Simulated scan of single mutants.
Amino acid sequence: MSPRSTGATGRGQAPCHHGEILQGVFRDGSGRPCPGLVTLPMAGPGSSAVFTIRPGTDPQAPTVAPAGRTNAARAAALAVAECARRAGLPPCGGELRLAGDIPAGLGMGSSTSDVIAAVRAVADAYGTRLPAGAVARIAARAAGPACDPLVPDGRPVLFAQREGRVLEVLGTALPPLLVVGCDLGGGAPADTLALPVREAGEADVRAWERLRALLRRAVAAQDARLLGAVATARARRGERVVGHPEFEALAAVARRVGAVGVQIAHSGAVAGVLFDAGRAAALGLPYQVRGCLDALEAHGIPAARIFTTPGVRARACASFSPSHPAAELLWTSTSRSRQATRT
Results as ranks from 00 to 15, higher is better:
G29W: 05
R225N: 10
V257N: 10
A304S: 13
R216Q: 15
F320M: 05
A340R: 10
V64C: 15
H299G: 12
V64T: 05
G127K: 00
G185S: 10
Q288F: 08
C147N: 13
I264G: 02
T57D: 13
L283T: 07
L184E: 06
A277W: 05
Y126I: 01
G133L: 09
E248P: 10
A295G: 11
V80M: 09
C16D: 06
H17F: 03
L215M: 08
G186M: 08
S110Y: 00
S337A: 13
A173D: 12
E328T: 08
G24P: 02
R315K: 11
R206T: 15
V253F: 01
P245I: 09
G105C: 03
V179A: 13
R240L: 14
V135S: 02
T70F: 11
L150S: 09
S48C: 11
L22W: 07
G36N: 02
R255V: 12
C83A: 05
E209L: 12
E95Y: 04
A218Q: 11
S267W: 01
S111A: 14
V115S: 00
G46P: 04
A77N: 01
I264F: 03
G19E: 08
V115W: 04
S30W: 05
R216V: 13
P91T: 06
V289Y: 10
V262W: 03
R313K: 08
P245M: 12
A326L: 02
L193P: 00
D294P: 00
P196E: 06
R206S: 11
R212H: 13
R129D: 09
A79C: 06
V169W: 02
P149R: 15
G88S: 02
S113W: 05
E209W: 08
C83W: 12
D153A: 14
G19D: 11
C292Y: 06
P149N: 15
L227T: 06
V25G: 02
A146C: 06
A318P: 05
V25Q: 02
R32A: 14
E95D: 10
R120H: 13
R338V: 09
A139H: 01
T70A: 15
A298E: 15
V166H: 11
D148H: 04
R206I: 12
T334E: 14
D101M: 04
L98C: 05
L296R: 03
V38P: 03
D153K: 07
V38S: 15
A81N: 05
L274E: 09
R255D: 13
E199R: 15
S110L: 01
R210C: 07
R290S: 12
G107E: 09
T309M: 14
T192I: 07
R240S: 08
I21E: 00
A136V: 01
R198P: 02
S323L: 10
R54F: 03
A220T: 04
E209M: 12
R129Q: 12
R237S: 09
F26R: 02
A220V: 02
R237C: 08
T332E: 05
V179T: 06
L214A: 14
T343V: 09
P189Y: 08
P62E: 04
